[in-house]
Design a protein around this nucleic acid. Structure first.
Length: 292
DNA sequence: CTCCAGGAAAGTC
DNA sequence: GACTTTCATGGA
């Protein structure tokens, strides 16, 4: 199957979308990108304005890659200054992906204090060991482990998966979700603040992890995750938006306190508007691209 | 060897 | 309530 994209109405860049750091489990063989979402294994490739795909139907592709988002309108709305403008031009067509909440939640709990190659390793490790094997294109893929599959593992087994101090967070969060005490559908319908407060109850979930889950899997496009890279962006470009004491804190090496986090994140929501999460993803990838 | 990574929670004042 | 320390480990 293939989809013709009008670059003016529906801009899309598969490469930027998969490489910007929001997803961890895609693989590339030859010129195809292979993804697995829930139990759907599929492959995608893009040449100019044509998106070619196998394994899933058009509705799935539209939904997963958020091709229903009016990207030109969103970009116009968040384009508030020359920095974000440059990031938008550089990574034109980058879209937020609609991930499954459970996998997104565990992925970003694992992501605390890890670099991206390391995150990919542990997520693949968990899937290969405790997920279900599915064949596609003569290759083997694995579903992401279910909540019950992770809940029944000992913390020692999880530590052997290179999870370190995150092992207990993963096990405890898996137990809570497995018991049905976390209703992702309800969170999707709830407003941003309400949904965030629910997620913050989970072990291993703080401000940043909660915002990533809200943005990437629960339709909260105003969520603005702030990590070490975004702190650098604000230190280098947005100091003047804050009072002097806070501008000085941004220059320091301390990790962000929850108050610092709220200050940056809520400013960004006012400054960039209801699609602040899109602005975050462009700025994040732009900042990272400078160093690699 | 040292430094850093898409932080969160426990501890301290 | 705000700030500091601790928590493991692979990769550069």
């Amino acid at each position: 199957m293939e989809l013709k994209l009008n670059p003016h109405l529906t801009p899309f860049n598969l490469e930027h979308t998969l490489q910007c750091g929001q997803v961890f489990r895609w693989k590339r063989y030859n010129d195809w990108n292979y993804g697995i979402v829930e139990r759907h294994v599929f492959k995608v490739k893009q040449t100019k304005n044509t998106l070619e795909f196998r394994g899933v139907n058009l509705d799935f592709i539209m939904r997963y890659f958020r091709l229903d988002d009016n990207l030109p309108k969103i970009m116009a709305e968040v384009n508030r200054d020359s920095l974000i403008g440059q990031a938008i031009r550089t990574f034109s067509g980058l879209r937020i992906v609609r991930q499954s909440p459970w996998e997104c939640l565990i992925s970003f709990i694992c992501a605390t204090c890890k670099n991206i190659p390391s995150i990919k390793n542990v997520i693949h490790g968990l899937s290969n060991q405790f997920g279900e094997k599915i064949s596609f294109d003569n290759r083997e893929f694995h579903t992401f482990p279910t909540p019950s599959a992770l809940a029944e593992l000992s913390s020692q087994v999880l530590r052997d998966c290179k999870l370190g101090f995150r092992a207990n967070f993963i096990r405890e969060t898996a137990e809570i979700v497995d018991c049905g005490k976390m209703d992702f559908e309800a969170l999707r319908d709830a407003d941003y603040q309400t949904a965030k407060e629910e997620l913050l109850q989970l072990p291993g979930v703080g401000n940043k992890v909660a915002d990533c889950v809200l943005l990437f899997s629960l339709e909260k496009l105003e969520a603005f995750p702030v990590d070490i890279w975004m702190k650098r962006v604000f230190r280098n470009h947005y100091k003047k938006c804050f009072d002097m004491p806070f501008a000085k804190r941004l220059s320091g090496e301390q990790s962000l306190s929850s108050r610092d986090y709220d200050k940056i994140s809520s400013f960004a929501r006012r400054y960039f508007g209801k699609f602040a999460g899109y602005a975050q993803e462009y700025l994040y990838y732009y900042e990272r691209a400078k160093t690699v």
